[in-house]
Computed example of a mutant assay.
Amino acid sequence: MSRPPTWTPPPCAHATALGTRRGRFAALDARPAGRPQGTALLVPGFTGSKEDFIALLEPLTRAGYRVVAVDGRGQYETDGPDTEEAYAQGELAADILAQAEALGAGGSGSRGGNAGKGDGPLHLLGHSFGGHLARAAVLLDRTPFRSLTLLSSGPAEVAPAQREKLKLLRDALTTMSMEDVWEAMRAMDAPTEETPTDGADLRRRWLRTHPAQLLAAGRQLCAEPDRVAELAAVQPLPKLVMSGERDDTWPVAWLDAMAVRLAARRTVIAGAQHSPNTDRPAETAKALADFWDEAY
């Protein structure tokens, strides 16, 4: 579970609802002082939310980018159905394409990679499970996007130890309330340096996330096929594989090999683990802006 260093957006950002043809999605929209040279759509991972990207917003807007971080359907402040079928990967990928369209990016058959008027090309980033969704969206239609970043997101299913943890969580979610599962997870967690406020924010996010979304996402993480060859064939599309120097969800060696297969840029953020966006946000933002600048 990502632990945002802060839950308060910087002055450059505001909370909003991104209206699309597939519904409304809670979002944080951050804009630079001048005309944006591009827009980034950020997709959070399993048990995550748009707040996982808060620490990136200010440095990325200083670099000249508009940044829109979203809660997917059933995540935190975005409503969602109660059936697992509604959270199939194809449905969530279609949501991302609708979000891109709402930001002004062209769809299939149009000149792709352009966000709304004055907001420049659209760059797509997915963290962890969000990377699998971003990949699926690009495989459906790459034309809205100027680039794709897979942040701590691997080539296929998660590592065996993580699959065991996800199975335990799925079993708990089918027999226990969200409140009871939260208390059980906290009891099993190693001690952290979270403040009481951090814990309250994490708890609120957990309780507002739909169990069906968590169940469906957990199943997908345990069964995702290797689609790297398909993604490598999507051209032209600059790709970045970024991670921390340690990762228990997908071993770093797996991410190294995936980057080679994709002919992608590979960036490792020193001192970070599975969430460079919260572990080392300044370094992560700089690497992202450098990549987007070159993909312009």
Rank of each mutant, 00 (worst) to 15 (best):
A272Q: 00
A229I: 06
P196G: 11
D201F: 10
A272W: 01
M185I: 10
V228C: 01
T249R: 13
A187D: 14
P191N: 05
R219W: 10
L207H: 08
W206R: 04
A184N: 11
R186K: 12
P236L: 03
P191K: 07
E194C: 08
G244L: 08
M188I: 09
Q235R: 12
L240E: 11
L255I: 08
K239I: 07
L202A: 12
I269V: 15
M258R: 05
I269F: 00
A212S: 14
R204N: 11
R205Y: 05
D201W: 12
L255R: 10
M185Q: 15
G199R: 15
A190D: 15
A229G: 10
C222W: 00
R205V: 04
A253P: 00
P251W: 05
V252N: 07
A217C: 12
E230Q: 13
D198V: 08
W182E: 08
R261K: 12
V252Q: 07
V241W: 01
A257S: 13
P225I: 00
W250K: 07
L237G: 00
A259L: 03
Q213S: 14
V181H: 09
W206H: 15
P251N: 06
L231F: 06
D201R: 12
Q220L: 13
A216P: 02
A184E: 11
L255Q: 15
R203Y: 01
A259N: 03
E245M: 03
V252C: 08
T209Y: 02
W254C: 05
T209H: 03
V268I: 14
E194N: 11
A270E: 14
L202G: 06
L237I: 04
R205M: 12
A200S: 11
R265V: 14
Q213F: 13
R219C: 04
A253Y: 03
Q213M: 15
T192S: 15
A223P: 00
A263K: 14
T249W: 11
L214Q: 11
M258E: 11
P238I: 04
A217Y: 01
W182V: 08
L207Y: 09
R265I: 02
A272V: 01
E245Y: 02
L202K: 11
M188W: 07
W254T: 10
A190Y: 03
L240S: 09
L237D: 02
T192H: 08
P238M: 03
R266H: 13
V181F: 14
A223D: 09
A253Q: 12
G244H: 09
P196W: 12
G218W: 07
E224V: 00
S243I: 00
A217Q: 14
A253T: 13
R266L: 10
P211S: 15
T209D: 04
A253S: 14
C222D: 15
L255T: 07
D198E: 11
A212E: 08
T192F: 07
M258C: 08
A184V: 09
L221P: 02
M185R: 14
